[in-house]
Each structure stands twice: as C-alpha cells, then as structure tokens.
Write a protein that binds this DNA or RNA. Structure first.
Length: 289
DNA sequence: GGGCAGGTCTAAG
DNA sequence: CTTAGACCTGCC
C-alpha cells in the first residue's frame, strides 16, 4: 500500500482485495450516494468524502493525510490481509463461488452509536426504506457537515441531539413503532454514558448480552452492532438472507441457533467476513426465494 | 390491494 | 426455552 497526499486528496496505490463498489453497496453502510461508475459520496464519522476507484488506485477527495490515517484507513480495514483470509476460506469448496463473487468487500469500521440506531431501524424493513429513515433523522437532527454539488449534507445526529425527542418527533421521520426502540437506546446510553466505549473492552458474550438490554435490540441487531460498529469479526448476524444462504449451503442446519453454532465452530474469527460475503451473494442471487 | 422487507416484542405452552 | 402473531411504513 502506497499513500500519496496532494491538494486535499489522498491516493492509495497497490491495494489488493479491495472493491469500492461492493464494499459500499453490500448493505453494511447506509449513508452514501452513487455519483457514477466506481464513484461515490460517503458520509461517515462526521466527514463527507468523495471516493473513486480505478484500475491502479483508490482516491479519497476532501481528505487530509491526517484524516486518512485517523479515520479512513481503519474505516476501510485497509491493513487487514483479505487475500490471506480468502485463501483460508477457500478450503471449504462450498465457498469458492461465493468468495469469487464477493471478494473485494471490506468490513467497514463504523461509528457504534450510528450503527446501533441504524440497525435498530433496520428490523423488518427493506434497505431503501432504512436509508430514507436515516436521512430524515440526519436532516432533522444532525449538524451540517458540508456541501457538494449545491446540496447540503448532515452528520449522523449525536446522543444529545436525539435525547428528549418525543415519539411523534421520531415518527415524523417515519420510523414507525421503532420510535420506542430508539428512545430505549438513547435512555440506556444516557444512563450509562460510558457503555459504548465499555463494550469495546468486554468479552464478546458480555457485549452481546449487554446490547440486548436495549429494547429493540435482539440477537441479529446485537451481532450487527458488534460487527459493523466494533469490528468484532467473530460475530455472525443471521438475517433472512443468511438463513436462506446457510440452509442452501448446509441443508442439515435447521434452526438459527444451529446456524449460529456452525458459524462459530467453522468460521471462528472470520465469521463476520463470511457473513458479509454470503449476504452479498445471497441477496443478489435471491437464494432461497 | 395483499405481500414483503438485513427482526423484535409479547404472550402463551 | 421455543413458537406464533402483531407491528409502522413504503414500494412492488
């Protein structure tokens, strides 16, 4: 990996196993806009960046070297050797086709608070609607972080901005019955202000059960928070697509618990990556539908 | 118009 | 501990 800084932009060369399009569009993050082929606008960590990928390089516009090293390098998981992980996973023949289809995806290290709220909103909904809800929340309660092509963009609202909102404030953002879930999450963090940083240091099981004390956070959302918000690669969120995909690959698996156990035993600390590869493959091939 | 979404809650056996 | 039903909302 070779990094060049010039004129408010960062260019990264010699990057293997990285596909910007798959990484952005595979369903792990919600706040992006496609500007063209391999060309995106992304909002994360209170920053607005323009991203491009070509044959030889990955470009981040409106970013300094400092921001790259402090945020984006980790955000895009650029220091993990995905080629090596893919090689390991290919030992299971059933995964060769999936890896071939999904390789290039990187697990994004996103903000835990944003991920918590976003995935609480995700239950029983389709991805485009989730994105609409999140944008509504940001426009209402997030602070302005920049403009691009005469459009104003907003950060994801912080705890203080979402605190003391009424159910009708939230329902105005079309979150539906999840209004109470959001309030529960806000109250929980308000009561235990260090909780989101404490989770980082907890054992997986501890963090997993702590998160589920929040109303609206069940097994799937808790795994998602740990995977996308904390980069805990042993997590294996099982949603409908993963359930369909896993039953397709391993017909002997009957319940979500069996799928969960199978993943822990067979994928271990690569579970999160397998999960995202399989999700991307299953949803685009409509496996099991 | 009925069905379906990156599920979770609740109330029952 | 496991399992059915209900649930906001928008888009097909």
């Amino acid at each position: 990996m070779r990094i060049v800084e010039s004129d408010q932009q960062i260019t990264v060369y010699d990057l293997s196993s990285f596909d910007l399009e798959k990484t952005i569009e595979c369903g792990q993050c919600f706040r992006w806009k496609k500007l063209g082929n391999k060309h995106y606008l992304l909002i994360a960590h209170n920053q607005l960046v323009e991203l491009l990928q070509s044959e030889e390089c990955f470009v981040l516009k409106h970013s300094s070297l400092n921001q790259f090293n402090q945020i984006w390098r980790n955000y895009f998981d650029l220091d993990r050797d995905y080629a090596l992980i893919n090689h390991t996973l290919e030992k299971d023949e059933k995964f060769i086709e999936i890896i071939n289809y999904s390789k290039g995806i990187r697990l994004l290290k996103q903000d835990p608070f944003e991920i918590l709220i976003s995935f609480i909103l995700s239950s029983n909904r389709s991805i485009p609607i989730i994105q609409c809800n999140i944008e509504a929340l940001c426009e209402q309660y997030g602070h302005k972080i920049g403009e691009f092509m005469e459009q104003t963009y907003f950060a994801f609202p912080d705890l203080a901005s979402l605190n003391n909102l009424s159910p009708s404030d939230l329902r105005a953002c079309k979150v539906g019955y999840r209004d109470a879930y959001i309030q529960s999450a806000i109250q929980f963090i308000d009561r235990y202000p260090q909780i989101l940083s404490d989770i980082e240091r907890m054992t997986y099981e501890q963090a997993y059960s702590t998160l589920q004390k929040i109303k609206g956070v069940g097994p799937k959302v808790a795994h998602c928070v740990l995977l996308f918000g904390y980069h805990k690669m042993e997590s294996f969120p099982v949603d409908v697509w993963i359930e369909r995909g896993m039953k397709h690959l391993y017909p002997q698996l009957k319940t979500i618990q069996e799928i969960q156990d199978f993943a822990r035993e067979n994928f271990g600390h690569h579970s999160g990556i397998v999960q995202q590869y399989l999700f991307y493959y299953a949803i685009n091939h409509k496996i099991g539908k």
